Amino acid sequence: MSARDADGVEAAGTEGGGLPLASAAIARRAAPLRGQVVEELRRAIFEGRMGPGQRLVERDLIEALEVSRTTVREALRTLTAEGLVVEVPQKGSFVASPSREQIADLYAVRASLEHLVVERFVDRASDDDVAGLRRALDDYADAAGRADITDLVQAKDRFYGALTAGARSDVLSDLLESIQGRVRALRATSLSSPGRREASVAELRAVVGAVVERDGPRAAALCADHVEQAAAHVLGALED
């Protein structure tokens, strides 16, 4: 077993050829090439084709995706900003791999922040904000009924985007985004657990129901419970 360093990645990971990417090369579509590379790598991480601690060797990515070194480096910077990849000095880029203790701390901080964000949303959000939150929840529920885990994680991001927008707090928005970035891959793990998608939708429907009633304490408590359930599924998956 490889040792885990202080940055939360395995000191040794899979490297070399044969990267498990969905296609041998990025198709030349209308979308910017860097965005296509980011999307392919993001999907590979969310779907487990690139596992926690795996080293992302630039040369291998260039050959597998048939893109330039500049494009690969820009894509890795984007994924690092999202918290999916970590850059370790003198070692390179790795798929993020937090320890159990780090995961527990991340979700504890997330629960506290979301508790406060929901309270602020109830106090400050307009009726239009509430309507937008309900639409975002419906989109998330629709995504939960499909197989694509990447679409589901992105729909969850949009739900939180609507929530933080209505809370009208730049401070809370920035803090929550920094945490959300570090739990995106973990969220994919949680939502891949049997029955978790349906439970997640039900939990968030309860949160939004309390928000609609402008019951801040109840909505915040339900949101914190939702985060605790997600953490339990992630930590449980690590034991399997």
Rank of each mutant, 00 (worst) to 15 (best):
Q154Y: 09
V37N: 00
E82I: 00
R110W: 10
Q90T: 14
R69E: 13
I149F: 04
V109E: 12
I62C: 07
V201D: 06
E119G: 15
G18K: 09
A210T: 03
A64I: 03
D138Y: 00
S190N: 04
S193H: 00
A22Q: 04
G18R: 06
M50G: 07
R197L: 00
L172C: 03
D127F: 08
L137T: 10
Y140C: 10
M1Y: 08
A81V: 09
L172D: 14
Q229S: 15
D240A: 11
L238K: 08
V57S: 13
A11D: 12
D151R: 00
R158W: 02
A136G: 11
D105N: 10
S200T: 14
V171H: 14
A141I: 08
P217Q: 08
D225Q: 14
V183Q: 02
D128K: 05
R214M: 04
R77I: 02
V88Q: 09
G132L: 03
T78Q: 03
S23L: 04
Y140V: 10
Q36A: 15
A3Y: 12
R29V: 15
V208Q: 08
A165I: 00
D138V: 01
A30W: 07
L175C: 11
E213C: 03
T14N: 14
V153I: 11
E74S: 04
A219W: 02
L116H: 14
S169F: 07
A3F: 12
G35Y: 07
A22P: 02
V38M: 07
A64Y: 00
V171E: 13
A144W: 05
G51S: 13
D105C: 04
A131L: 09
Q180S: 15
S178T: 11
T150R: 01
P89R: 09
L191S: 06
L235K: 00
L186R: 00
G48N: 06
R28I: 11
R182L: 03
M50L: 14
R214A: 09
V38W: 05
A188C: 07
R77C: 06
R4A: 01
Q54K: 02
E177Q: 14
R187I: 07
A12V: 15
A155K: 02
G13R: 07
G8R: 01
E40M: 08
S2R: 05
A11F: 01
I179E: 00
R187A: 13
T164I: 07
G13L: 01
V130Y: 04
A230T: 15
S99V: 05
A22D: 13
A188V: 03
R124Y: 05
F94C: 06
Q102C: 08
P194L: 04
A3W: 12
R218T: 15
G166E: 01
E63L: 12
A144N: 01
Q102V: 06
D170Y: 02
A64L: 05
S193P: 01
A108W: 00
V57H: 15
A111H: 10
L41C: 08
I62L: 12
L152S: 02
V88T: 11
A147F: 04
